[in-house]
Simulated assay, not measured.
Amino acid sequence: MGNKSWVDIFEAINGHDFVHKLLDFGDAFISECVIPENNILWQDVFNSMLHVIKSFDKNFYKETYPSIPVWYNSNIRVGMKTLFIKSWYKKGVRLIDDFLDDKGNLLSHNLFQHKFDIQVCILQYNSVLSAISTHLKLFENKGVFNRAFSPYIPLFYKPLILQTKCTKSVYKQLNVNHDIPTSVSKWNLDPVAYGIEICVKDAFTVCFKTTKDSIIQWLQYRILHRILPVNYYLKKINVVSFDCCTFCNDEVETIQHVFIGCEKLSILWSNLSMHIYKTTSKRIGFNVLNILLGELPLLKGNRIVNFLILYTKQYIFSCLKKKKTNCQDSWNYCSIYTTNTRLKNVLHIRI
């Protein structure tokens, strides 16, 4: 950890002992002691760290439960309060492993006193033991207990300390989520989806698999999360007082209406499909589902279709922002590809 520049800075500000406590204690130490005592910058840093710590699932704890810290652990409480007994900590009591014998069973009061050469109130010890025991019940079938012969790496920082660059590990940890986002589940319920079940993973990755253009990626992200600044959304958040379509001025300007429903733009998709057919002799159909979410599933042959859809949507949205109402007439299909020959070659190979 000494090579991590932010830790060096934090240690210079707060001292070596404080950094050791950060490694020895649980998540509640960050929320109860670290964050309130620091400025906005460090509050943000440690709020992020806390988010990483709380993202670990039960399987992670199950495999490493002996190294779970006892002090300031939000899951080990007595009387609704986290634990910290200074005299025990000074004697080296830090982890659940310190309360276990060689077979993984909880130590008796006498054995614990003998192990750490400390006098402990039996009522206090039983309270702590009860809290630990309750927490361990979460890990049924913990498996064979193997005590480490070397000091444990601090549990919450193990994925970070063992790697020179930990940003990728943190990113993956924060994105381990199998829940369906509310925005996508709404697409499943929306009548425009025709009841077709959407593959969440594909819907969110289709853009990144198709192009590295950050402008296009940001556009599709806002469409998927229903936060694209169309008039319906802007009125909803009190930015504008009207929600009529910029192009037709007849209906409410929703995401679906702008890209699919507006009569002034519907011909654009038909013309694009015809242009591709005349150029390549390939028939590509554009519909409500693939215009909004992409051509799914993610197959190699669908990449060019998604490319065309994404850049056409970017053109439409650009016209919307500029209030250019005649975009269906001035759309240059060759702006996506430099020549019709290149378009023909790409389609011939991949479809």
Rank of each mutant, 00 (worst) to 15 (best):
I161V: 11
K165V: 12
V170D: 01
N175V: 09
D179V: 10
D179N: 13
D179R: 13
I180R: 11
I180E: 12
S183C: 08
V184K: 09
V184M: 15
S185Y: 14
K186E: 15
D190Q: 05
P191E: 09
P191G: 04
V192E: 10
E197N: 11
I198G: 00
T205Y: 06
T205E: 14
V206T: 11
T210H: 00
D213F: 08
Q220R: 10
Y221P: 00
Y221R: 14
R222S: 10
H225N: 15
H225V: 07
R226N: 05
R226Y: 04
I227E: 04
I227Y: 02
L228G: 05
L228I: 06
P229F: 04
I237Y: 02
S241I: 10
F242N: 10
F242P: 00
D243P: 02
T246K: 13
T246Q: 14
T246M: 15
C248A: 04
D250M: 12
D250L: 10
D250F: 13
V252P: 00
E253G: 03
Q256I: 07
V258M: 11
F259H: 01
F259M: 02
G261E: 07
G261K: 04
C262G: 05
E263G: 01
K264Q: 04
W269H: 02
L272K: 00
H275Y: 14
S281Q: 09
K282W: 09
I284L: 12
G285T: 06
N287Y: 09
L289I: 15
I291V: 07
